[in-house]
């Protein structure tokens, strides 16, 4: 049976709509989520189907409505918070890190916080330094929070459903440059467990571990590498926590060389953690140091040529991988 193709945005919307139909406790709260359907038009049509009581527009007040969602989750609802730009999670940090992440633990399991925070990451949209960052490493650092980074429409739908059904807080990062990406998405109700990596492409010579939109970059680089006779494996962890360490290590053992790609800042970032996991688990099977590629350690510039230079591209990943594999 030929599968339907949906865009990434449509896949997210379908997951939300299906979950809201399935469970009346699921609701949406955030800025411009109702009639506007968010600036990225991800939520278009939802307020029409579910009404303003379940798709709630708020003032510009991230700390406030995130706190409202934490409380609502503790008292019986399953809110999905929309933080328009991932840069704005700075305002929600106390609610997420000190309240949502801790309630289940500090109440001895009495309270649960079944909420999802959906937000965005990713540069190259010409949105300048305050609207272009990828800050998912921050939440990945905190015990009690789960962090999801879908890379395809298929993964987006399956992972978002799992996140909504989780009994404690999950942060769901969508790359704003991927909303128009198309891919097959089944119509049926399926879920993808958190903490299970996906080998997006099998290869023998080098492993490209990549998250979110960097998976698409890695797949593009793999095609360029193939022309040079280098077989690249692309592994997508899909969640930074829980983390499927085994799949990463097994792939590293298979190919002996690894580049880790993530659009967050390289310094103290997701790439550092993934590289360390691989170095610890596969040290005696590595033929080269694990290489990290992430955002340059600068505020993301507005200038298009400068912005393009701050993040890994198919070409830069291809060149780095070729340099690791080609004999001197």
């Amino acid at each position: 049976m030929p599968e339907r193709e949906l865009t990434f945005a449509q896949a997210v919307r379908e997951a939300l709509a299906e979950e809201m139909r399935r469970d009346s406790r699921v609701c949406i709260i955030g800025e411009d989520v109702a009639e506007a359907g968010t600036p990225f038009k991800v939520l278009s049509g939802l307020v029409e189907e579910f009404g303003a009581k379940r798709v709630v527009d708020t003032p510009i007040s991230e700390a406030g409505f995130t706190g409202v969602a934490v409380g609502a989750a503790m008292t019986g609802l399953r809110p999905v918070v929309d933080i328009m730009f991932g840069d704005f999670i700075t305002l929600t940090m106390d609610q997420m890190v000190n309240q949502a992440a801790k309630a289940h633990y500090m109440s001895g399991g009495h309270w649960k916080v079944p909420m999802v925070m959906r937000t965005t990451l990713g540069a190259t949209r010409r949105s300048a330094a305050q609207h272009s960052q990828s800050l998912h490493a921050w939440f990945s650092h905190v015990p009690g929070l789960k962090v999801v980074l879908p890379s395809t429409p298929f993964d987006a739908k399956g992972l978002l459903k799992t996140a909504i059904r989780d009994e404690n807080p999950v942060i769901f990062f969508e790359d704003k440059m991927m909303y128009k990406l198309k891919g097959p998405v089944p119509e049926d109700d399926y879920t993808i467990p958190l903490g299970v990596a996906d080998v997006k492409r099998s290869g023998d010579d080098i492993t490209l571990v990549a998250t979110s939109s960097m998976v698409q970059v890695a797949l593009g680089a793999a095609i360029l590498l193939e022309r040079e006779g280098i077989s690249a494996e692309v592994v997508d962890p899909r969640t930074t926590w829980p983390l499927d360490e085994k799949t990463l290590i097994d792939s590293a053992k298979k190919t002996s060389r690894v580049i880790v790609l993530d659009e967050g800042y390289g310094r103290y970032g997701v790439t550092a953690e993934l590289a360390a996991v691989i170095a610890e688990g596969a040290f005696y099977d590595l033929d080269a140091p694990v290489k990290r590629m992430g955002a340059m350690h600068v505020p993301i510039p507005f200038s298009p040529p400068l912005e393009d230079a701050t993040v890994p591209t198919e070409q830069t990943v291809f060149e780095a991988a070729r340099a690791m594999c080609k004999p001197s």
């Binding site: 002996s256 033929d287 080269a288 004999p327 001197s328």
Partner: peptide, 12 residues
């Protein structure tokens, strides 16, 4: 004799 990019001795 190493065949790595910097003359490193590799598994192969």
């Amino acid at each position: 004799r190493g065949s790595g990019p910097g003359g490193e001795i590799l598994a192969s």
